[in-house]
Design a protein around this nucleic acid. Structure first.
Lengths: 126, 126
DNA sequence: ATATACCTTCGAGTGAACTCTATAGCAAGG
DNA sequence: CCTTGCTATAGAGTTCACTCGAAGGTATAT
């Protein structure tokens, strides 16, 4: 039984990353050794796609590409780096939590400004 | 009684924006008519500084500069634009709330990955 | 067989938001 | 009066994360 693989366009559809960006990520070392078919077309496995989805979680929580490179590099070094990866991820987790806290605080201040504008509008039409 | 004013360096210290960025923001039309002293040095009023702090809230909730320009432009047009500003701000409020929701969801997935790594570490030392 | 719609690599281009450089005027301490 | 450090303007340069273009090989439908 063969492992199912996907062309770059399929993966683009599945992840939302353009083929250009998928090649770019590979070149940056974020994706390790994507297989090729007989015409040297990239063929992605399900594992590759899961990894891309995980990378997208990191990206969408504002992890810089440089740090994702570091993480990917540790991953490609095998199981001895799990402790380091864990540390990196826990740090990131804390930063995201802070990010959320700041956003929540700012959101509250914006809500106050909205309230202020609403009052101005009411007094204006008095 | 004179109004107290502040040099660009003071304002930089108070807001965290560099003097460069303060001039840049002014040039973009985000700050309206900063006063000048007899040597044509910028002198910022307390009102200017409050406005900068508000801009920073918008920025740190990822409002693009272009939208801040739009908002600032409405502000400089006076009270007839309050309804429009309110609308703009409410839209932004909703976007920030979505942002927070997405972050929270991703944070949760990252927490699972952390949990997964911790399990790997425990089994490894068994 | 030909059109079209993929795929490849490599290097250049883009847009957002700063950030810095160069050149020059002003100003307070010793 | 000189040095150090502020201020000014205009325009060029930087960083990040893509994004595109050119040139050419491959694949499927008619």
């Amino acid at each position: 039984m063969k492992i199912q693989t996907f062309t770059i366009q399929k993966v683009s559809d599945m992840t939302g990353l353009s083929p250009h960006t998928l090649r770019y990520y590979e070149e940056l070392g974020l994706l390790n050794k994507i297989g090729r078919n007989e015409h040297s077309y990239r063929m992605y496995t399900q594992a590759d796609i899961s990894w891309i989805h995980f990378l997208l979680r990191l990206r969408s929580t504002s992890m810089p590409i440089a740090q994702m490179q570091q993480f990917s590099s540790l991953r490609s070094m095998g199981d001895e780096t799990i402790a380091l990866r864990l540390e990196l991820l826990e740090n990131h987790h804390n930063q995201v939590q802070e990010q959320i806290d700041h956003l929540t605080e700012n959101l509250d201040k914006i809500a106050r400004k909205i309230h202020h504008y609403k009052e101005l509008l009411n007094n204006g039409s008095k």
